[in-house]
């Protein structure tokens, strides 16, 4: 079965694989950051009292949740050229993953906001804390706790989405795997390794999020 799985492959191409994984992480981090920015903006828009803003926010969320990521990756990289806008492949990927993730994050924030009891706001107001201060010091921390698991899942989802950037030749892990596969024809080996690396990254992140959740939010729950 040496023709099927070649462990030596891993070693020979190690620098390419590591570089690919590093790019994946970098792309993932940038996309996650972008998705939080878009998500916050989307939530604020949708929650606005102005009807035009609320509609725009709602349209953003529904449009992005019901269309595929790949559409935006192509659209931003190839499509916008036709109207005179050029983005690099990396930027296109970050923006595409950012707006996609943002739509889900906007909804997560919305859910967390309604989950925070209104009486908390009332108490803050009674103490003389104006709305912005109440939001910053009382509501957001509680929203973060409620939203944390869902946000963690969304971060992982965005990280997995970075694989799509390979189609516009961003040199992340899956792209490098394709290159290696094309030159060695050891597709089974190379995509196995590819999959395992993602698996390890995701599992590590999941454990990390559980740990943070336990350490940061644990004491709040008290002894009950």
């Amino acid at each position: 079965m040496t023709s099927l799985f070649d462990p030596g492959l891993f070693w020979r191409y190690r620098s390419v694989i590591v570089a690919g994984a590093a790019t994946t992480l970098l792309l993932g981090a940038c996309s996650v950051a972008a998705s939080f920015v878009f998500g916050l903006a989307g939530w604020l828009l949708k929650a606005s009292k102005l009807r035009a803003c609320a509609w725009a926010g709602g349209a953003y969320v529904e449009a992005l949740r019901n269309t595929p990521d790949l559409l935006y990756i192509y659209g931003l990289y190839f499509g916008l050229v036709t109207v005179g806008v050029t983005f690099s492949a990396f930027t296109s990927a970050v923006l595409a993953l950012g707006i996609q993730g943002g739509a889900y994050i906007a909804e997560i924030i919305r859910g967390a906001f309604t989950a925070v009891s209104n009486e908390q706001r009332v108490a803050a107001r009674a103490l003389g804390l104006k709305p912005w201060k109440s939001l910053a010091y009382v509501e957001l921390p509680q929203m973060l706790r409620v939203a944390f698991p869902a946000l963690g899942n969304q971060v992982i989802s965005t990280l997995l989405g970075t694989a799509l950037a390979s189609v516009i030749a961003v040199p992340e892990l899956t792209y490098q795997s394709q290159i290696i596969g094309d030159s060695t024809y050891q597709y089974f080996s190379v995509f196995s390794v590819d999959a395992v690396i993602y698996l390890v990254l995701v599992q590590a992140l999941t454990r990390l999020f559980h740990l943070i959740d336990h350490l940061w939010f644990g004491p709040w729950r008290g002894t009950v």
Partner: peptide, 23 residues
């Protein structure tokens, strides 16, 4: 279940299209 949810869909498709035929 864990495997499918921890690996990008694209990689799974590549694996099936390029990898399985070899196996």
């Amino acid at each position: 279940v864990e495997f499918v949810r921890s690996v990008p869909l694209l990689v799974q498709i590549f694996f099936v299209y390029y990898g399985l035929p070899l196996m």
